[in-house]
Design a binder for these strands. Structure first.
Lengths: 203, 203
DNA sequence: GCAAAAATGGACCTGCAAGTCCAAAAATCG
DNA sequence: CGATTTTTGGACTTGCAGGTCCATTTTTGC
């Protein structure tokens, strides 16, 4: 059904998505016109509407999915291996590094705001991302509990929810203030808090 | 200089801002046209541009300021009186209540996204809001330290930064998922963590 | 009550960016 | 190689929302 793309076509489609994503990252969703995407990717209007019959909305949706996937990919392999305290710290460092590099440009924030209301699919993409992200953190906490590094009476789901919220807020505040401090504080304090819970027997 | 508004004019201006804010809360920034604001507030195009010579951008900026102020007002008098654990819990409850009622409609998220890039002032509004918010939390923590309810070795600024980030992320996740769980988790766990620090002497 | 200033209404203009359409070129496949 | 399908280019249409303008009414201040 969706099989009607030759290899060349698939390449062009991918090029459009990647180019649009880059353009949006650099200049913001509402500043990017289809013409900009065309110029950057060396494509024509006919091509855009050939590969995205729903027009800009469809393209934005594809870009959102692309960017959402990238968020988790950027955290690997750390995120899937939260099996020791050094591993947790490595993940922490990766997050800081990634968002420090990204700076004030948040693709998803804008994409959700712009696309969110229109396409019901955009909401689903972000929800899916958050769900996968939280699941990975929960798994990490559970693993640490199995090795006794985190107290067994910690509610892994709840703790992961809080940590994920902290990260999101930290990134949001990075966008607003330009400072990484909030993200650092929330990561360090939350992880420390999990760590402190390990001392089941006492100091 | 800016004194050229009669009482009637001031009332009209305020009505426009309030009406635009409500419209935006209900339908999202990018869905609201000037015509919608005019219809809702019973004003004409001439009036809009009379009170907001910079057009839509100026209006959006005024709305952003209006909404930012409201965020803090909604937390009073709790936010300015974080002087005992029951007071902290009352504040927590107020936050949950407020954002539960607000649901999926976040005025500032959209406003920052839309206005942020254009007007440099929008960024400043959000930054100012965050700064004031964090300052109130820091003051609360410091007060609790002065009464011995929170350990003296807690870095109040850092802890406040983390809590604020958690709240922002909790709200963001409420927008994405529709669930209040993240906000609840982050508030409870973070406040508990501050509380635990009070036991300076040991368990 | 009267001049000046402010408030109001609404017709009109304008630009731009999304979306349409079709014809030409290139690839696929037997 | 020839038929069919996909890919590509770009001129053209369209709708709409922001913004301009000015004429009219109301308020202000003396």
């Amino acid at each position: 059904m969706t099989r009607a793309l030759t290899r060349k076509g698939e390449a062009t489609r991918a090029r459009i998505v990647a180019g649009a994503a880059a353009e949006i990252r650099e200049r913001g969703v509402d500043e990017v016109r289809l013409e900009d995407v065309m110029a950057r990717t060396g494509t024509s209007k006919g091509q855009l509407f050939h590969y995205f019959p729903d027009g800009k909305d469809g393209l934005l949706l594809a870009v959102a999915q692309h960017e959402a996937d990238q968020v988790l990919i950027d955290q690997e392999p750390m995120l899937s291996n939260l099996t020791s305290w050094p591993a947790w710290l490595a993940w922490r460092d990766r997050l800081i590094e990634r968002y420090l590099a990204q700076g004030v440009k948040c693709p998803l924030n804008g994409l959700l705001g712009q696309t969110g209301r229109r396409a019901p699919g955009a909401q689903a993409i972000v929800t899916g991302l958050m769900w996968r992200w939280q699941k990975a953190i929960t798994d990490g906490i559970r693993h640490m509990q199995s090795t006794g590094d985190i107290a067994a009476d910690v509610d892994a789901d709840r703790a992961a929810a809080a940590l994920l919220a902290g990260i999101q807020g930290g990134v949001l505040l990075l966008l607003s203030t330009g400072k990484i401090d909030h993200l650092e504080a929330v990561l360090d304090l939350t992880i420390d808090s999990l760590r402190a819970g390990a001392r089941t027997g006492g100091s």
